[in-house]
Amino acid sequence: MKVAVIKYNAGNIQSVRYALERLGVDFVVTDAPEEIQRADKVIFPGVGEASTTMNYLRARQLDTLIRDLKQPVLGICLGMQLMCAHSEENDTPCLGIFDQPVRKFVAASTQKVPHMGWNDLIGCTDWLPASLNGKFVYFVHSFYVPLAPYTSAQCDYGIRFSAALHRDNFYAVQFHPEKSADAGELVLQSFFQATS
């Protein structure tokens, strides 16, 4: 199995690289279209701001490339949000792979924004094993994807939101599996075992 990590101006590419090294996965970090298309699995990382990142992807035609991929693709954090229809972050049209909006958390006295730290997974289903229920993973985000029919894990931060998604060959997680200790490694392995 060969994994391609899409190389662009995302802030967490190094962390993803080291997590894959620790798992002993054969991978390449690349923005070459043919190399991405040829890979068995693709990871679309992401830390940053939505509109700047979408502009960056469009300028390099990575937006259509990602949308047209046929092998399993895993979006991480901002990667997941950009796979949705539209983000409230600077009113940004996104890739539209998941027909969901991306909304901003509302700050309250009991709830700080960003949602930063370790929170537990609820209702793991589909590609995520039930053993991940109640396991803690590391989140850093101010925007969230609401629950959808294809939500494959939930998290609670004042409201329930999508911690993970899966539709067709597209997978996504809002948290950082590359920084989530053993639980994160299990999530990555679950993606590598996913077949479609």
Binding site: Q14, S15, Y18, A19, E21, R22, Y138, H176, E178, K179, S180, A181, D182, G184, E185
Partner: peptide, 8 residues
Amino acid sequence: IARHVNIP
């Protein structure tokens, strides 16, 4: 550190 530590 980044290579060997799997938490932030």
